[in-house]
Design a protein around this nucleic acid. Structure first.
Length: 683
DNA sequence: GTAGGGTTAG
């Protein structure tokens, strides 16, 4: 406001002074006459200032110009209100004449995350003669926005109708991006047509091209994408430009997004040159599609090739590390981030918290959570889910209240954490309350996952009828996971009657899934109905359904060792076997009787006992006992849920061998120590 | 001024 007259400034400061004292009666004029009086609160301060400035004679306002100061001033804006203030100074008659000034304002409110797209459109509409630059800016803003990217296409068509402007190479990337984001191939094809119509080789511009290829890939038109890609990427193979690398990256990512990870990897291997983004994309692709080991392998390979991970690499690889429970590698990543002065913000922070929680170190997860300067809804969901996974239900619920107090709106994912915390701890009343809270207070519609938690919660607590009723009255169609939760509860409480019904409807719902067959045959086995078990097994064999084999893994010296049931392929198989025998003997001496109810096969008792001893988690423990020094805690992860016999024998093993043993099964953690488990045998 | 990679989930 440097150019404001002394009088105007004095008037402004008087206004500000009055406002800072409290409220102020403000007269609103309409058509030059007093219209209405209103109470202005300090909150409206900036708005009043804008009005005051706008009311100044135009001589006091700086004239529109494309000076570099415009950019500097816009960059100094911290909030939308700052920007409106700046804007006010640029307006005389409600129209902005200078497209450069307008573009700076547009860029702020449209592209900046603090901006406001609505306001951007208004500013755009006020530009007297928008040039190509202004059109491009507003379109880019729309295509980057979350809610209405297709608005960019609408504006694009409007632009085509203007005689004085022509789209250029900066126009198409954002319009194409908008179409791709919404997977709108019709609109995309229209834009492609325009690109060709414009001529001057626009369709081989690297920025236009990469967006075109991405559009076709996202819309599933792989053939068209490949044609464009081959035509342009291969002929440039001589000297590889950055644009060519991007084109390859888009293709790799496109294959992965279409679910063709192998095709993506093949292209990745064929790339004439890779950038850091290529590596990051492949790591993220593997991690997001459940190929955690592959994600870690390629992360390793990248470093062997001398490519240094950046922030995005870490954020991409951490979920894979977390799922595998590779704590040592996770710690290394954390140290790497610190060493390279990377900011541990809410995003990287959430990934690290999740990693520590999933790797069994919930204490470290909590500690890190408190150190984060900013927390978003994902951060909160992560810590709540982490505590739930470790059976610390009360703490999880405590964090939920803290989150609400902090004014962060809980998302639906957050409620999954809350409800599963209740389920794992048997907090039936609380669970029901939170379910209602979710609908009434947070205004969220429960999804399948939430019903799943509730069925689990009720079922575990033995309220099988209530769980069944909930399923029958659900407003959405229950899926197999819901039925499986109920089935699990039936098995737990020995309710074969409901269990049979559930298993049967499961088989109808998903005839290819082994789970329901296994569950039903287990149910028969519990009853000792071996004829029915045999029939089930035969049926499974006929339609070629196999049970997922149990699999456990343990990290020792930064290496992950994986064991299947009855696994004897490990190089240390002999030592492992001896240790298993020692374990069995010591367990017997301490008076332990194997619980052969968990072997659902019609075989002799002795055979059953030995089956139990080759459950993958026991093999992993044996391996841990022989390869680590005395007192080292063992951390094991498993693909299925832990069985009852393993649970009770591992409790004893923790006491006999004086080791902390942390096991993460498909659903949650068990911390075994001195003969007890953190789940208090409720799981 | 424009393109490619990122966190939570029964």
């Amino acid at each position: 406001m440097a150019s404001m007259s002394a009088g105007a400034l004095k008037a402004l400061f008087t206004l500000l002074g009055l406002l800072s004292l409290g409220h102020l009666i403000f007269t609103i004029y309409k058509d030059g006459l007093p219209f209405r009086k209103e109470l202005i609160t300090p909150i409206d301060l900036e708005v009043v200032v804008i009005m005051a400035v706008m009311a100044l004679p135009s001589a006091h306002l700086p004239s529109d110009s494309a000076s570099p100061y415009v950019q500097v001033e816009v960059r100094n804006c911290k909030t939308m209100r700052d920007l409106m203030l700046f804007h006010a100074r640029r307006i005389k008659t409600g129209r902005i004449r200078d497209p450069f000034v307008a573009a700076e304002i547009l860029k702020f409110c449209a592209l900046d995350e603090r901006g406001d797209l609505q306001y951007a459109r208004q500013v755009f509409n006020q530009i007297e003669q928008p040039n190509c630059f202004s059109w491009n800016t507003i379109m880019r803003a729309c295509s980057d926005s979350e809610h209405q990217p297709l608005e960019a296409f609408v504006i694009f068509r409007e632009m085509l109708q203007q005689e004085e402007v022509e789209p250029n190479r900066f126009t198409f990337p954002s319009v194409l991006k908008a179409c791709a984001q919404m997977a709108r191939i019709q609109e995309g094809k229209q834009v492609h047509g325009q690109i060709i119509k414009c001529g001057s080789g626009l369709d081989s511009d690297q920025f236009v091209l990469s967006n075109l290829v991405r559009l076709y890939m996202i819309c599933g038109l792989t053939q068209d994408a490949c044609r464009l890609f081959r035509k342009n990427a291969v002929k440039r193979a001589g000297s590889i430009s950055e644009g060519t690398v991007v084109l390859w990256n888009v293709m790799v990512d496109g294959h992965i997004k279409n679910g063709d990870i192998i095709g993506g990897r093949r292209l990745f291997d064929e790339m004439p040159q890779r950038s850091l983004v290529s590596w990051n994309g492949m790591i993220a692709g593997y991690a997001q599609n459940g190929f955690f080991k592959e994600a870690l392998e390629i992360f390793r390979e990248m470093q062997l090739k001398g490519v240094n991970p950046n922030y995005v690499t870490l954020v991409s690889v951490l979920p894979a590390i977390a799922r595998l429970g590779a704590l040592e590698l996770g710690k290394w990543v954390h140290a790497y981030a610190k060493k390279n002065k990377m900011e541990v913000d809410d995003v990287l922070g959430s990934a690290l918290i999740d990693m520590y929680a999933k790797c069994g170190n919930i204490g470290k997860a909590v500690q890190l959570f408190h150190k984060l300067p900013q927390k978003n809804t994902i951060t909160w969901s992560t810590i709540i889910g982490g505590l739930a996974m470790h059976g610390q239900a009360r703490e999880a619920l405590g964090y939920f209240s803290k989150m609400e107090q902090a004014g962060v709106k809980p998302s639906d994912v957050c409620y999954i954490g809350v409800l599963s915390a209740c389920a794992h701890a048997g907090l039936v009343h609380e669970g029901r309350d939170y379910f209602n809270h979710m609908v009434k207070v947070s205004g969220l519609r429960p999804k399948l996952e939430h019903y799943g938690c509730m069925v689990d919660l009720l079922g575990r607590a033995g309220l099988l009828e209530e769980a069944e009723e909930l399923i029958l009255n659900m407003p959405i169609k229950p899926d197999d996971v819901i039925f499986k939760a109920l089935l699990g509860a039936c098995k737990m409480h020995g309710n074969v009657e409901i269990g049979k019904l559930v298993a049967e409807s499961l088989m109808k719902l998903n005839p290819c899934d082994s789970g329901s067959y296994v569950a039903l045959s287990n149910m028969y086995a519990l009853l000792g109905n071996w004829d029915a078990v045999a029939k089930m097994r035969l049926m499974m064999k006929e339609i070629d359904i196999r049970k997922d084999p149990g699999c456990s893994w343990i990290e020792v010296d930064g290496m992950i060792h994986e064991f299947l049931v009855e696994d004897d392929l490990h190089p240390k198989a002999k030592e492992i076997h001896l240790m298993l025998e020692e374990m069995a003997e010591k367990l017997k001496l301490s008076g332990y009787n194997p619980d052969t109810n968990h072997v659902l096969l019609n075989i002799g008792e002795e055979e059953k006992e030995s089956k139990l001893f080759y459950h993958s988690e026991k093999i992993a423990i044996a391996f841990g006992l022989v390869t680590t020094s005395h007192g080292t805690p063992l951390r094991i992860a498993k693909n299925l849920r832990i069985c009852g016999d393993c649970h009770s024998s591992i409790k004893l093993i923790s006491r006999i061998f004086n080791r902390k043993i942390v096991i993460r099964d498909r659903k949650r953690f068990h911390h075994f120590e001195s003969g007890f488990c953190s789940c208090k045998d409720y799981w």
